[in-house]
Structure formats: structure tokens, C-alpha cells
Design a protein around this nucleic acid. Structure first.
Length: 590
RNA sequence: GGGUCGAUAGCUCAGUCGGUAGAGCUGCGGACUUUUAAUCCGUAGGUCCAGGGUUCGAGCCCCUGUCGACCCA
């Protein structure tokens, strides 16, 4: 479809939607004709009326008026009945005979000034719903600039999605639902576009493009993003309490470093300087350790110029922290503690969503495995019934891969021999080969092979002691200089952490950078640049330090049971709306 | 990059053997004085993703393309 054709198709679709919008605009005009402001902004400013009550407050007031099943007792509510003024978005509207039910949604509870000094509050976030029961026989004083609800006339101009303000008394319906029966009601913001219907809003692309609709229409979506906030906030708490200093380091840099990935480039005009967006904050944070910030962290937005997938978004958030006088083993203990802490806080702060998240999890955080990469490969060979040479000899021209595939029987078909062989042939060191063997023989089977005692859940696995060649910033192992003091943590088969004792020998670091540069010269795409200033920093002396990185997006995916990274990023990168692909312009047609 | 599935009303989806385009919800009009996906009556709403082909006839079959989702790399 050409841009032209797409545009005209969009126009036709919009025209159809426009009819619904037009009907709502007419209501806005009618409200104005009656002297009412459909976009009122004096909700809090008016004198002579009760302060706006949050739904949580209303509910709290009647906390004792419920029966054993949580229904509100009519008599009890009537006895404690309270005059309230509430506001919220109309998410449900039903009129019948001389009455109408209007369900409002609003923020559950906001702390008052006294509570804002209490560091433990607010302990949770949620929106709540509260029902209005409007009756034509009600009467009362009009809201300033509002309308007496005598004949329910104003409800004619109310649509799903509007924001309204109502004043009235609390009551319970026959079915035991706490409600407010208003004597006055007014529209404070008219919505010109309709919300999706109750059959919901499922089209994935539309959901990502119009997240503002998604969040209103799909309740569990909102709870995933509250979970994300709870997770980030718990990570901060954990580190802050241990004396870590949160910092911000540059996202634009002349040098690509700290990880192996393709960067975005940009340009600074005044200095006429080509810059890269950071792929990791690592090298700046370690400079700070040199400078004496012995416990330091950053929740760093990083940018990698690679493809989109359910596990990759070009911008994503990474936690990195560095701790002096610690080793990667200290960090393994801390990682277990951190994950359990975050999970506990998640349960406390998003209690409703948490039950659903937990039900979806196929892993448990009760026990963590720790295994060297070598042991994992040995065990994998053993489990598949393969000889040891299968791990290292796969790249040889005469490798008997067909025989091995036959030997591996049960899992043989799942081992990706073709790519394993291709990968092995690209390796130019034994260390890289060892990593390839791990990647193809062991990693795909982590969730299957390492399970909790009850066998229904997988356990997180720390993979430790990576080969030197695949870890250019990690410290060599004292007992075996071909390996490094490093671990990666896999939860539910997905890598979420990467950590190591840091290389602080400046000459060793310079040599590793040179090896990366040579590799790039040989045509490798994902390498690090030589960072002279970083080497100079190390020459000033960095204390023995352990460093830790964790993908916040992936952590959120794992803890909330989300299948795609786009479900945990509010506004994921998408192809521009209605854009043709690069190869498809009018120029190529006719 | 490879594979699988999909695109039909504002939303969610049916569409039989190739024979005049369907439902529910939403919208609009009406009935109903405590509803919980209310119910009932009426009414409006479509460039069936685009282009080409086969055919007397294509939403349906074939080809090409676009976009999306999922799986694999």
C-alpha cells in the first residue's frame, strides 16, 4: 500500500470514527449553551463546600459497616451516612426508569500533609471505583456552576469516559454496594473520544500506540506498570539502605564501552562532535569508585541500535551498581537477597496484581543454584549422553554431528547443531569455544534441568566463571587465569543479571582493550573501543571492586509474568503510524 | 533473516460449497425507580488491508506487497 493509499484508507476510517466524536462535541456545545463549563478547572478552588473526598476515604469511613462477605449493610451505612464530594472518570453508565448508576474511577487515596513526612507512605498505589446512584427525586443545593440533579437532565450530556464531580450522601444499594447518592452533579471534563467497549481493547498495536486508552480499558495493564514502579522503588530502597550513592552519568559519549552492542550515533553542533548514546554506564561508574564513591549505582536508561523483539527494545533501563571491597561472591549473596526483597515489596505495594503475577510464575525464588560454566557443560553433555569432544570439536570439518545428534536422543533434536557449528567456527580461542558450548548445550535447558524440590518450578541459576576472552572488563581468576570472577543469573531461562569482580589492573585492562580493537579490525561488529581516560583512571588506582548489572525491564517481565518487553515499557518504540517501509515508496510504482 | 498465524462495522469477532455483508457491544431513539457484562423494542453504521490473477460471479481460491502478533536465529 502506498503512503497515499494508506492515508486515504486512514481518512475513511477516521471519518467513521468522527461521527461518534461529533455526537460528543454536540453535548459539549449543549453544556455550554446551558452556561456550564465542560472543561471546568475550579474543582478544588470553590468555597463553601466539603473538600474533595478520595474513594479510599469514603470506603474507610464505612469500614465497619460490612457483613462477613464484604457487602455493605444498608442500615449500618445509613446510620453513618456522610456528605461527600467526589470526582472521577465515568467508566460505567446505566440509566433506567427514574434512576441511573454511574461508576466513577479515581486514585484510591492520597496522603494528607501529615502523612507525607512518614517515609513508609504511601505504601501502595491503586485506583478505586465508586458508584453513584442518581435518583430523580433528589434535590439539594446546586454545585457552583453545576446543576441540581432534580430531573437527572445533566446525565443526558454525560458519556463514558467523561470526568464528573458529584456531591451527595453515602448509602448502600440492595445488593450491598457502597454508593453515593448525589443531589448535584456536573461534568468537569468532557471526553470527545469514546472509550473502548466492555468487550475490551485487545489489538496489541493500538494498545501500545494509545497507552492512555490501554491503561483505562485494561485493568491488569495498569497493575503491571504499578508493579514496575514498585520494583524500581524497592531496588532503590535496598541499595540506599546499604549506603549506596545514586548518581547520573552521561548518556552521550565519544566512546562506545561497557558492553558489547551496536550504538546509536548523534551529533553536537556547537562542538561539531560526533557522539554515541551509551550502551552501558559501566565505565563512568567505575571512574567514580576511583574517585572514592565506594558504593555507587545508577538506574540507567541505555540505548542499543539493534532489532526489536519480545525481549529487546532499543531503549531500556539497567541497574548497575559497584561495591568496593567486595567480590562477585559477595554479590551473588546480595543478588538473592535483593530479588527476595523486591518480591516482598511488590507483594506489599501491589497486593491485588501480585496474586495474578505469582500464579503465572514457573519459577521460585526460594533456592538458587550456583554452577560453573564448565560444570554446566559437563552436566549437559552427561544428560544428553554426549562425549566430551562434542563440546569443543563441533567446529571441526570432520565432526560427527549426525552421530552425536543420534546419541543425544531425547534432547538431541532440541540442540541447534547447525548454529552451534556455525558459532564454533567463528570462535578464535578456546575460551570462546567454551562459551559457545555452554550457550548451545546447557543454557537452553536451564529451566528444565534445575528445578525446585517439588519439581513444579524452576530455580534461578547462577552461571559462574566465564572464559577470559568473553569478559573484557572482568578480573582474572587467581586460581585459573583463563577464567574470570564473573556470574550471570538466569531466572526462568532468561538472563537478568551479569556481574563480576572488576578488573583493576590498568595494564591488563589496556591489553584487553587492545584485543577488542584488533577484533574490530578483523571485522567483528560488537566490540569495545579503547578508552584511554578509563585506563588513566585505573592507573590512579581502583580498590578491589565488584560490579553488578541487571535489566529492569526483564526483571519486571519475570516478576509480573509478562511475555513481551513491550508490556513493561509504557511507550515502546514502534514503526511510525501509517508509515510505508523504506523500500516501498511511490517512486517504485508505475 | 527464517517459520507460523492474522487484517471484515467505533470495539470484539462470525462468515458454510465461490452466489446480495452478519452478530454482540458501542452510538442514536424509546420502555423500565437499587443495576452489577442488566433486560426489552426500534434504528444507524462496512473501500471485507492494498494491487494483480482465476471465474459468469471472489470477503472466501492463486500470486505479489504492506502492516501486525507469536516462535526461532
Amino acid at each position: 500500500m502506498s503512503k497515499h493509499e494508506q492515508a486515504s484508507h486512514r481518512a475513511a476510517t477516521q471519518e467513521a470514527a468522527e461521527a461518534l466524536v461529533e455526537a460528543r462535541r454536540l453535548k459539549t456545545a449543549r453544556l455550554r449553551d446551558k452556561g456550564l463549563n465542560p472543561f471546568a478547572n475550579d474543582v478544588l478552588a470553590r468555597d463553601g463546600h466539603a473538600a474533595l473526598s478520595s474513594f479510599g476515604e469514603v470506603r474507610e469511613h464505612h469500614a465497619g459497616d460490612r457483613d462477613g462477605e464484604g457487602r455493605y449493610l444498608r442500615e449500618a451505612v445509613a446510620k453513618h451516612s456522610k456528605r461527600v464530594r467526589v470526582a472521577g472518570r465515568v467508566i460505567f453508565l446505566r440509566s433506567f426508569g427514574g434512576g441511573a448508576f454511574v461508576r466513577l474511577r479515581s486514585w484510591s487515596k492520597l496522603p494528607d500533609d501529615a502523612q507525607t513526612t512518614d517515609p513508609t507512605l504511601p505504601s501502595r498505589w491503586a485506583s478505586e471505583e465508586l458508584q453513584l446512584y442518581c435518583q430523580s427525586k433528589s434535590s439539594g443545593d446546586p454545585l457552583d456552576g453545576g446543576t441540581v440533579l432534580g430531573d437527572l437532565g445533566v446525565l443526558d450530556e454525560v458519556d463514558l469516559g467523561d470526568f464528573v464531580e458529584a456531591e451527595g450522601t453515602t448509602m448502600a444499594t440492595q445488593k450491598g454496594e457502597l454508593s453515593v447518592t448525589p443531589d448535584a452533579l456536573r461534568v468537569i471534563t468532557k471526553a470527545h473520544r469514546p472509550l473502548p467497549t466492555k468487550t475490551s481493547f485487545k489489538d496489541v498495536e493500538s494498545r501500545y500506540r494509545q497507552r492512555y486508552v490501554d491503561l483505562v480499558a485494561n485493568k491488569d495493564v495498569a497493575s503491571v506498570f504499578r508493579a514496575r514502579t514498585a520494583i524500581v522503588s524497592a531496588v532503590r530502597e535496598y541499595l540506599d539502605r546499604r549506603g549506596f550513592l545514586e548518581v547520573e552519568t552521561p548518556t552521550m559519549s565519544r566512546i562506545v564501552g561497557g558492553a558489547l552492542a551496536k550504538p546509536f550515533s548523534t551529533h553536537h553542533n556547537a562542538l561539531d562532535l560526533d557522539l554515541f548514546l551509551r550502551i552501558a554506564p559501566e565505565l563512568y561508574l567505575k571512574r567514580l569508585v576511583v574517585g572514592g564513591f565506594e558504593r555507587v549505582y545508577e538506574l540507567a536508561r541505555c540505548y542499543r541500535n539493534e532489532g526489536l523483539s519480545t525481549r529487546h527494545n532499543p531503549e531500556f533501563t539497567m541497574l548497575e551498581y559497584y561495591q568496593a571491597y567486595a567480590t562477585y561472591e559477595t554479590l551473588m549473596d546480595q543478588t538473592e537477597e535483593l530479588l527476595r526483597y523486591v518480591d516482598r515489596r511488590l507483594e506489599e505495594r501491589v497486593p491485588d496484581g501480585y496474586q495474578a503475577f505469582k500464579a503465572q510464575r514457573s519459577f521460585s525464588l526460594e533456592r538458587f543454584e550456583r554452577l560453573t560454566m564448565r560444570a554446566l557443560v559437563e552436566r549437559a553433555l552427561d544428560a544428553a549422553g554426549l562425549p566430551p569432544e562434542a563440546a569443543f570439536g563441533v567446529g571441526e570439518a570432520d565432526a560427527p554431528i549426525k552421530e552425536w545428534a543420534k546419541l543425544a536422543k531425547a534432547r538431541g533434536r532440541e540442540i541447534d547443531w547447525a548454529n552451534f557449528k556455525k558459532g564454533a567456527q567463528k570462535c578464535d580461542s578456546r575460551g570462546e569455544l567454551a562459551f559457545a558450548a555452554y550457550e548451545y548445550l546447557a543454557e537452553p535447558f536451564l529451566t528444565r534441568d534445575y528445578r525446585s524440590a517439588c519439581c513444579t518450578k524452576s530455580v534461578p541459576v547462577f552461571v559462574i566463571d566465564h572464559p577470559l576472552e568473553t569478559s573484557p572488563l572482568a578480573r582474572k581468576k587467581d586460581s585459573d587465569p583463563s577464567l574470570t570472577d564473573r556470574f550471570e543469573l538466569f531466572v526462568d531461562g532468561r538472563e537478568i543479571c551479569n556481574a563480576f569482580s572488576e578488573l583493576n589492573d590498568p595494564d591488563d585492562q589496556a591489553a584487553r582493550f587492545r584485543a577488542q580493537v584488533e577484533k574490530k579490525a578483523r571485522g567483528a561488529e560488537e566490540t569495545m573501543d579503547y578508552d584511554e581516560d578509563y585506563v588513566r583512571a585505573l592507573e590512579h588506582g581502583m580498590p578491589p571492586t565488584a560490579g553488578f548489572g541487571m535489566g529492569i525491564d526483564r526483571l519486571t517481565m519475570i516478576l509480573t509474568g509478562s511475555a513481551s518487553i513491550r508490556d513493561v515499557i509504557l511507550f515502546p518504540l514502534l514503526r511510525p503510524e501509517g508509515a510505508a517501509s523504506p523500500g516501498d515508496s511511490e517512486d517504485h510504482r508505475g
